[in-house]
Amino acid sequence: MHSEDPRARRTRHRLRSAALALAAEHEPADITMAAVARRAAVNRATVYLHYPDLDALVSDAMQDAVAEVARAAALCPLDAPSDRAPEPLVELFDHVGRHDTLYARMLGAQGSARFVAGLRERLADALVERFRGGSRPMGFAEVPLDVHAAYLAGALVGVIAHWVPADPRPPAPEVALTTWRLFRS
Protein backbone atom coordinates (compact mmCIF):
# COMPACT_ATOMS: atom_id res chain seq x y z
CA MET A 1 0.00 0.00 0.00
CA HIS A 2 1.40 3.37 -1.00
CA SER A 3 2.34 5.52 2.02
CA GLU A 4 0.29 8.45 0.71
CA ASP A 5 -2.82 6.31 0.39
CA PRO A 6 -5.50 7.66 2.77
CA ARG A 7 -6.10 4.13 4.07
CA ALA A 8 -2.42 3.76 4.94
CA ARG A 9 -2.43 7.14 6.74
CA ARG A 10 -5.54 6.15 8.71
CA THR A 11 -4.00 2.81 9.62
CA ARG A 12 -0.76 4.43 10.80
CA HIS A 13 -2.80 6.92 12.83
CA ARG A 14 -4.69 4.05 14.50
CA LEU A 15 -1.43 2.20 15.17
CA ARG A 16 0.20 5.29 16.67
CA SER A 17 -2.85 5.99 18.85
CA ALA A 18 -2.91 2.38 20.02
CA ALA A 19 0.80 2.44 20.83
CA LEU A 20 0.48 5.67 22.84
CA ALA A 21 -2.53 4.34 24.75
CA LEU A 22 -0.66 1.15 25.60
CA ALA A 23 2.50 3.07 26.55
CA ALA A 24 0.44 5.12 29.01
CA GLU A 25 -0.87 1.90 30.59
CA HIS A 26 2.17 -0.40 30.48
CA GLU A 27 5.94 -0.30 30.57
CA PRO A 28 7.32 -0.18 27.01
CA ALA A 29 9.04 -3.56 27.50
CA ASP A 30 5.63 -5.13 28.19
CA ILE A 31 4.01 -3.91 24.97
CA THR A 32 3.91 -6.24 22.01
CA MET A 33 3.07 -5.76 18.36
CA ALA A 34 0.18 -8.17 18.89
CA ALA A 35 -1.22 -5.93 21.65
CA VAL A 36 -0.92 -2.88 19.40
CA ALA A 37 -2.69 -4.75 16.61
CA ARG A 38 -5.53 -5.75 18.96
CA ARG A 39 -5.91 -2.20 20.28
CA ALA A 40 -5.87 -0.75 16.76
CA ALA A 41 -8.26 -3.47 15.54
CA VAL A 42 -5.96 -4.59 12.74
CA ASN A 43 -4.20 -7.80 11.83
CA ARG A 44 -0.73 -8.16 13.34
CA ALA A 45 0.75 -8.51 9.83
CA THR A 46 -0.66 -5.06 9.06
CA VAL A 47 1.44 -3.58 11.86
CA TYR A 48 4.57 -4.99 10.27
CA LEU A 49 3.62 -3.58 6.87
CA HIS A 50 3.93 -0.11 8.39
CA TYR A 51 6.61 -0.52 11.07
CA PRO A 52 9.58 -2.90 11.26
CA ASP A 53 9.46 -3.09 15.06
CA LEU A 54 7.75 -1.70 18.14
CA ASP A 55 10.48 0.85 18.81
CA ALA A 56 9.96 2.39 15.36
CA LEU A 57 6.19 2.52 15.93
CA VAL A 58 6.47 4.13 19.37
CA SER A 59 9.07 6.62 18.15
CA ASP A 60 6.78 7.60 15.27
CA ALA A 61 3.83 7.86 17.65
CA MET A 62 5.80 10.20 19.93
CA GLN A 63 6.80 12.57 17.11
CA ASP A 64 4.04 15.06 17.93
CA ALA A 65 5.17 15.13 21.56
CA VAL A 66 8.80 15.54 20.50
CA ALA A 67 7.82 18.35 18.14
CA GLU A 68 5.95 20.11 20.96
CA VAL A 69 8.97 19.90 23.27
CA ALA A 70 11.34 21.11 20.53
CA ARG A 71 9.00 23.96 19.58
CA ALA A 72 8.75 25.17 23.17
CA ALA A 73 12.50 24.92 23.74
CA ALA A 74 13.27 26.82 20.55
CA LEU A 75 10.87 29.64 21.48
CA CYS A 76 12.55 30.48 24.80
CA PRO A 77 13.88 34.03 24.69
CA LEU A 78 17.52 33.94 25.67
CA ASP A 79 17.39 37.37 27.26
CA ALA A 80 14.60 36.61 29.76
CA PRO A 81 15.37 37.57 33.35
CA SER A 82 16.71 34.86 35.66
CA ASP A 83 13.90 35.37 38.19
CA ARG A 84 11.13 34.29 35.79
CA ALA A 85 11.11 31.31 33.46
CA PRO A 86 10.19 32.09 29.85
CA GLU A 87 6.58 31.14 29.10
CA PRO A 88 7.53 28.58 26.39
CA LEU A 89 9.65 26.71 28.94
CA VAL A 90 6.76 26.68 31.41
CA GLU A 91 4.50 25.43 28.59
CA LEU A 92 7.02 22.70 27.81
CA PHE A 93 6.93 21.42 31.40
CA ASP A 94 3.14 21.79 31.50
CA HIS A 95 2.94 19.63 28.36
CA VAL A 96 5.24 16.99 29.83
CA GLY A 97 3.33 17.09 33.13
CA ARG A 98 0.02 16.46 31.36
CA HIS A 99 1.59 13.36 29.80
CA ASP A 100 3.78 12.45 32.74
CA THR A 101 3.14 8.71 32.75
CA LEU A 102 4.03 8.40 29.11
CA TYR A 103 7.20 10.50 29.43
CA ALA A 104 8.25 8.68 32.61
CA ARG A 105 7.92 5.36 30.84
CA MET A 106 9.58 6.46 27.62
CA LEU A 107 12.51 8.15 29.40
CA GLY A 108 12.85 5.56 32.18
CA ALA A 109 15.20 2.60 32.42
CA GLN A 110 12.78 0.36 30.49
CA GLY A 111 11.92 3.09 27.99
CA SER A 112 12.77 3.59 24.36
CA ALA A 113 16.38 4.42 23.52
CA ARG A 114 15.20 5.49 20.07
CA PHE A 115 12.73 7.94 21.64
CA VAL A 116 15.39 9.43 23.94
CA ALA A 117 17.86 9.79 21.08
CA GLY A 118 15.17 11.25 18.81
CA LEU A 119 14.09 13.75 21.45
CA ARG A 120 17.66 14.89 22.06
CA GLU A 121 18.34 15.12 18.33
CA ARG A 122 15.17 17.08 17.59
CA LEU A 123 15.89 19.51 20.44
CA ALA A 124 19.50 19.95 19.35
CA ASP A 125 18.44 20.57 15.74
CA ALA A 126 15.91 23.21 16.83
CA LEU A 127 18.54 24.92 18.98
CA VAL A 128 21.19 24.89 16.22
CA GLU A 129 18.73 26.56 13.86
CA ARG A 130 17.93 29.12 16.50
CA PHE A 131 21.61 29.76 17.16
CA ARG A 132 22.28 30.16 13.42
CA GLY A 133 19.52 32.75 13.35
CA GLY A 134 21.44 34.87 15.84
CA SER A 135 19.66 33.83 19.02
CA ARG A 136 22.60 32.39 20.89
CA PRO A 137 23.57 33.38 24.42
CA MET A 138 26.65 35.57 24.76
CA GLY A 139 29.94 34.08 25.85
CA PHE A 140 29.85 30.82 23.88
CA ALA A 141 31.54 31.88 20.64
CA GLU A 142 34.39 29.42 21.20
CA VAL A 143 31.95 26.50 21.53
CA PRO A 144 30.75 24.92 18.26
CA LEU A 145 27.03 25.46 17.66
CA ASP A 146 26.23 21.76 17.47
CA VAL A 147 28.09 20.97 20.71
CA HIS A 148 26.35 23.82 22.53
CA ALA A 149 22.95 22.68 21.24
CA ALA A 150 23.65 19.02 22.10
CA TYR A 151 24.67 20.04 25.62
CA LEU A 152 21.47 22.01 26.22
CA ALA A 153 19.27 19.33 24.62
CA GLY A 154 20.83 16.60 26.75
CA ALA A 155 20.44 18.69 29.88
CA LEU A 156 16.77 19.37 29.14
CA VAL A 157 16.03 15.69 28.47
CA GLY A 158 17.86 14.84 31.68
CA VAL A 159 15.80 17.31 33.71
CA ILE A 160 12.56 16.00 32.20
CA ALA A 161 13.58 12.38 32.90
CA HIS A 162 14.41 13.31 36.49
CA TRP A 163 11.28 15.39 37.04
CA VAL A 164 8.44 13.26 35.68
CA PRO A 165 8.75 10.32 38.12
CA ALA A 166 9.58 12.52 41.14
CA ASP A 167 7.33 12.06 44.15
CA PRO A 168 6.40 14.64 45.17
CA ARG A 169 6.97 16.37 41.86
CA PRO A 170 7.57 20.12 41.94
CA PRO A 171 5.07 22.15 39.88
CA ALA A 172 5.91 22.82 36.24
CA PRO A 173 6.58 26.58 36.74
CA GLU A 174 9.03 25.79 39.55
CA VAL A 175 11.04 23.24 37.57
CA ALA A 176 10.93 25.52 34.51
CA LEU A 177 12.45 28.35 36.57
CA THR A 178 15.14 26.05 38.00
CA THR A 179 15.96 24.78 34.52
CA TRP A 180 16.06 28.32 33.15
CA ARG A 181 18.50 29.40 35.87
CA LEU A 182 20.75 26.47 35.01
CA PHE A 183 20.63 27.33 31.31
CA ARG A 184 21.45 30.97 31.96
CA SER A 185 24.46 30.25 34.17
Rank of each mutant, 00 (worst) to 15 (best):
L49T: 14
L49M: 12
L49S: 14
H50I: 07
H50V: 03
H50G: 10
H50L: 11
Y51N: 05
Y51P: 04
P52T: 06
P52F: 02
P52C: 06
D53R: 00
D53F: 05
L54I: 03
L54M: 10
D55W: 01
D55L: 04
A56D: 12
A56L: 10
A56P: 12
A56S: 15
L57W: 00
L57C: 13
V58G: 00
S59T: 10
S59F: 12
S59A: 13
S59I: 01
D60M: 06
A61P: 02
M62Y: 09
M62R: 03
M62A: 15
M62S: 08
Q63P: 00
Q63Y: 10
Q63N: 14
D64T: 13
D64R: 12
D64S: 11
D64G: 11
A65G: 12
A65F: 11
A65D: 15
A65R: 07
A65Q: 13
A67M: 10
A67F: 09
A67G: 15
A67Q: 13
A67P: 05
E68R: 12
E68L: 08
E68Y: 06
V69W: 02
V69Q: 08
V69G: 01
V69T: 05
V69E: 08
V69P: 05
A70R: 00
A70N: 01
R71L: 11
R71I: 01
R71K: 07
R71D: 10
A72C: 15
A72Q: 11
A72R: 08
A73C: 06
A73I: 06
A74R: 00
C76W: 00
C76E: 04
P77A: 12
P77G: 02
L78D: 10
L78A: 12
L78S: 09
D79V: 01
D79C: 05
D79R: 06
D79K: 04
D79M: 05
A80D: 12
A80S: 13
A80H: 13
A80Q: 09
P81T: 14
P81A: 13
P81F: 07
S82W: 15
